[in-house]
Design a protein around this nucleic acid. Structure first.
Lengths: 243, 243
DNA sequence: TTTTTTTGTAATAGAATTGTAATATTATAT
DNA sequence: ATATAATATTACAATTCTATTACAAAAAAA
């Protein structure tokens, strides 16, 4: 299970604004970056330009119908496309055609169902990517990080310091992991807020200090003289790998 | 025509008409002759009568489930069968039981992927005409799993904790098994829903919590301090194998 | 069918985590 | 040495996530 550090982008193509807004809201809530198009032509343009990780595509569209959009996009990129169809009668006619669509969902759909399908299809892609890569390169999993006395396991969300298992909270783990992936590199609080807390986080920058404190309480022998997670005054924090 | 001999016939068995239509069109485009069935009983009839070169078989079917259909057909003819599954538990059945299925593909699948698999399986038949046994899916009958105090027997659907036999319901067993096959690995609720309940399931995510609770009541000494099935807050659940 | 068991849903209680703010401490420059 | 700016520390509040319970619905068994 790869960490969702890379935010997935989803393109919604539907001419009805209320529908788009519902989807934007709900998928946004799930942590996806959502972009939209209201007609077929711009859908193709946006898809090719922004290269979304998944496309939600309504069949009935102005300017260029969903079928053609699907075909065109599939022609030049391999992105999963989830078709939205209105009624059963329509499905047959539509899905019988030469789409290469990956999945479909009929209106009216429950938001829950749609979100679940989106996730399933995204996961599918990841599985395929991993499968392809594992054929080429042996062992691609960066699930374990070792720096000095510190060991992180991203699958188990487990941290060991000098062999001893330490229980960190999720936030603490993520901060430590971010720092540990680039040992020695000083990271600013701003960067941490952006990368760990997320782009649209408006909180106090001192939150980072407190989280660092909490990590230190768990991993340092003496919090007043940190040996692992060290402060670079005026800049930020880093993992000391000099020993 | 001479080339008619080479045109392969594929039987699609799925109760959802849209899915059938997608497959019909896409396989038709590839030059296959496609026939269809929407339930298990007629699938067997049609298969025996039309003698297709390959069968695409959904597991969830009305009247007669896909597994039984597979067994019956394999009993009287040697045609490659590609099973369509929606959840991991079904894969186990395919692999575990002596069905003779040749391959499987999990939903959601991309049409491209499916077409590729169909071709591969047809090719395999041709190669195998000179008598070699196909390199099937590896029969990894991991029927027994032991993690710490926990023992699972997938054949008997039996669970032992510290030697004592525990009676779990099917759903409970499947959840526990999924977790136990990857001890230490934290699994999200969403993954569990998809892998155990199936990707076509769109229920409340909290269902997982309740199921976990029920499992804990049966396998943990003290449900308030779980030693086996443990929560990783903010992520999901895992089987503790650290002891 | 009816009954029993299993499974899912929803509401609420309970905990743990996280964020904020106020204060103390430390480092640095002058 | 002192002023200043940056960081550490602490306590508490707010929030988020999980556990628990009861009940309804669905499935399986009788």
């Amino acid at each position: 299970m790869e960490e969702d550090k890379d935010i997935k982008t989803i393109l919604i193509v539907d001419d009805e604004e209320p529908i788009r807004n519902i989807l934007i809201h709900n998928l946004g809530k799930e942590g996806y970056n959502v972009i939209e198009a209201s007609d077929g032509l711009s859908a193709v343009d946006i898809a090719l330009e922004k290269k979304p990780d998944l496309i939600l595509l309504d069949i009935m569209l102005p300017k260029l119908d969903g079928l053609s959009v699907c075909k065109r996009i599939k022609n030049s990129m391999n992105v999963p496309i989830l078709m939205l169809t209105a009624k059963d009668g329509e499905i047959d006619k539509i899905l019988g055609l030469e789409l290469g669509a990956d999945d479909y969902i009929t209106k009216p759909f429950s938001v829950r169902e749609l979100v679940a399908r989106v996730k399933a299809n995204l996961r599918k892609v990841e599985v395929n990517i991993n499968a392809m890569e594992s054929e080429k390169v042996e062992e691609k999993k960066d699930t374990k990080i070792v720096v000095g006395d510190l060991e992180l396991d991203s699958e188990k969300f487990e941290v060991k310091v000098r062999g001893e298992i330490i229980d960190l909270t999720l936030r603490e783990f993520e901060v430590l992991k971010f720092l540990a992936t680039q040992p020695g590199q000083v990271v600013t609080r701003e960067t941490l807020l952006e990368k760990v807390w997320g782009y649209e986080y408006y909180g106090d920058i001192r939150t980072v200090d407190v989280t660092v404190r909490r990590i230190r309480e768990k991993i340092e022998k003496d919090t007043s003289t940190p040996q692992i997670l060290v402060t670079k005054r005026g800049v930020g924090y880093y993992i000391d790998d000099s020993k």
